[in-house]
């Protein structure tokens, strides 16, 4: 591999990893704070992509579409948490698994009914349709750099929020001892609703900003769900920092494996995960 190709692949891997982080961050946040294993997380990514397409059709503006989609995602998160998830806090994890699998079915069916089954596409916003030449042949689209920057920005905001704000303090307190938080007179159920809605919104926003560079198709949620779980488990469930490192690791390993070891590339991220869990059975950064 030439040096220039190596750098191009490095950028590819980092960019894929950053997007994975954005999708996975909500999953790990919800698990860390609430102990809820939300298998329908991938479905929210799918919903995000479809919403982006729908509102671009309606409004013609990608930015507007992204804002509307994020608001809708918050609403979905609040409703689902209040209506369904809240009933299961005192049950075991497996009931939550079953519930969220039921939700996957419902979201997939609604997608088919509302938007049909044809593959859909969203064009890259006009302002970011340029590309930067990397080698003689390969260019790098500005939009993909923008997406990477957004992911970094969201990671930074999450880091700041959790470590520096009152909400973050409550989240950290809730993670380590929920009874104590309740004793202090804080409405933990409202905190849970907020956290769940933020988790849903993160997945949806990831779906929205990924829409212009992916194909919007039925089943896209399940595919991304597995990758997300790999990321989150490698990093250690509930750890935002772990998810960030895990995502970059998965992105890089997947990218380089597909070029260097094509025969093994389908298995590579699973080999990576198995390997890490055998050495550190709780993931890299478990709390």
């Amino acid at each position: 591999m030439t040096t220039s190709l190596f750098f191009v692949q490095l950028i590819n891997g980092l960019q894929y990893g950053l997007l994975l982080f954005l999708i996975a961050s909500g999953l790990t946040l919800v698990f860390g704070v609430m102990g809820i294993l939300n298998l329908a997380h991938g479905s929210m990514y799918m919903v995000g992509a479809y919403l982006a397409w729908y509102f671009v059709q309606q409004t013609g503006s990608f930015t507007l579409s992204a804002i509307i989609s994020a608001v809708i995602a918050l609403a979905i998160g609040i409703v689902v948490e209040r209506l369904l998830i809240q009933r299961l806090y005192r049950r075991n994890h497996l009931d939550q698994v079953l519930l969220t699998i039921g939700m996957i079915f419902v979201f997939n069916a609604l997608q088919s009914i509302l938007w049909g089954d044809d593959p859909l596409g969203v064009q890259v916003p006009e302002a970011m349709s340029a590309a930067i030449p990397l080698t003689d042949v390969v260019e790098y689209p500005v939009y993909r750099i923008f997406v990477a920057l957004v992911c970094v920005a969201i990671a930074a905001v999450m880091y700041f929020m959790i470590n520096r704000t009152r909400l973050g303090m409550l989240i950290r307190a809730g993670e380590s001892n929920r009874e104590m938080v309740e004793c202090l007179g804080i409405d933990i159920s409202r905190l849970y609703t907020i956290v769940f809605a933020i988790g849903v919104m993160l997945a949806t926003v990831a779906g929205v900003i990924a829409a212009p560079m992916s194909s919007i198709v039925p089943g896209m949620g399940e595919h991304v769900l597995i990758a997300c779980f790999v990321v989150v488990v490698i990093g250690g469930m509930g750890s935002i920092k772990g998810a960030f490192i895990g995502a970059l690791l998965v992105g890089l390993v997947d990218t380089f494996a597909s070029v260097l070891m094509p025969q093994l590339s389908s298995m590579m991220i699973y080999i990576l995960m198995a390997f890490i869990l055998l050495i550190k059975p709780q993931g890299l950064f478990s709390s």
Binding site: S4, L5, V8, G13, Q15, T135, D136, V137, V259
Partner: peptide, 9 residues
């Protein structure tokens, strides 16, 4: 992306 970069090279 990674495959396409390789094709480019």
């Amino acid at each position: 992306q990674s495959y396409l970069s390789e094709i480019g090279s």
